[in-house]
């Protein structure tokens, strides 16, 4: 395995004494597509929120590109090249599709606030460049035709593609997709699978895929990590992991309905 982009060490999170994630050791290597699966309430969302700095861990360490970012605020982690999408899609509702992508891009490569305020030539040029870049990325997801629309006027499937475009446009080191197949029609799920592959193959983006839908995980992931009750119970190739008795137990175990 190549050097890890992100690595956690005994990562733990407790809410009011309830342990949501317990001593989680985990890493994603450069160029990998790693799946993170588990039943409802197993701690997947907690992992995403910890890795992106939305929550601070109770104990343990997080490293991005070898740099310790434990407890760092979300915007700093984002600037290190960690992008994400949300289970419940999040887009800026008063901005157009293009502006949504431009805004994310400008956090990485925009002109300074002062030079933007003074409307310097450099600021204008960078803004134009960001717009061109945004269009380019939207085109990849076939969303360029909707660029001028308000993000909230699109369908769920289209909004999901805009979220992906927003993340990819910034050329992230690590792209965390939080249940991207949720609410998508089968056709759109196929498209999602294609796009996840292309992001890695054509743009070299490392992907952490948190997912419920097994079809997506099995068809794109190089490796799958399984969480249950906040603990890692499996880590390996998709076809091996789904055969693992512990995983089967977790998914269809006593008194629990199968989610996958």
């Amino acid at each position: 395995m190549t050097a890890p982009i992100v690595e956690t060490e005994a990562l733990t999170k407790a809410f009011q004494g309830m342990v949501a994630l317990d001593a989680f050791d985990f890493s994603v290597g450069q160029g990998e597509i790693v799946g993170l699966i588990g039943p409802n309430g197993s701690g997947k969302s907690t992992v995403v929120n910890l890795l992106t700095g939305v929550l601070a861990p109770t104990a343990g360490r997080i490293r991005v590109d070898g740099r310790d970012v434990t407890g760092a605020p979300a915007h700093e982690i984002a600037r290190l090249g960690v992008a994400r999408t949300f289970q419940m899609i999040r887009l800026f509702s008063s901005l157009t599709v293009e502006e949504n992508v431009v805004l994310a891009l400008q956090q990485q490569s925009g002109a300074g606030y002062v030079s933007s305020f003074l409307q310097s030539r450099e600021a204008r040029e960078r803004r134009l460049a960001a717009r061109a870049e945004a269009r380019e990325t939207l085109k990849l997801f076939e969303m360029d035709i909707h660029a001028e629309k308000l993000a909230t006027d699109l369908s769920i499937g289209q909004q999901r593609m805009v979220e992906l475009a927003r993340g990819l446009a910034t050329r992230p080191r690590l792209f965390i997709l939080d249940e991207p197949a949720a609410g998508l029609s089968p056709v759109n799920v196929d498209r999602l699978i294609t796009m996840i592959r292309r992001m890695r193959d054509e743009f070299g983006v490392t992907v952490l895929l948190v997912e419920h839908v097994m079809r997506v995980v099995q068809s794109v992931c190089d490796r799958v990590v399984v969480l249950d009750y906040g603990e890692k119970i499996a880590d390996g190739a998709p076809n091996v992991v789904v055969e693992d008795p512990k995983v089967i137990e977790a998914y269809i175990g006593l008194g629990r309905a199968a989610d996958a």
Binding site: H75, F92, S93, E99, L103, Q107, Y113, F117, L118, A123
Partner: peptide, 28 residues
Amino acid sequence: LLTGSRFGDALRAVRDDETLARTIGMNT
């Protein structure tokens, strides 16, 4: 000038969704 610049975009971003604004790298 402020509202027409990147700062104005940032204000609108905070208003629309502060968590998202932080996640894309904004020091809200």
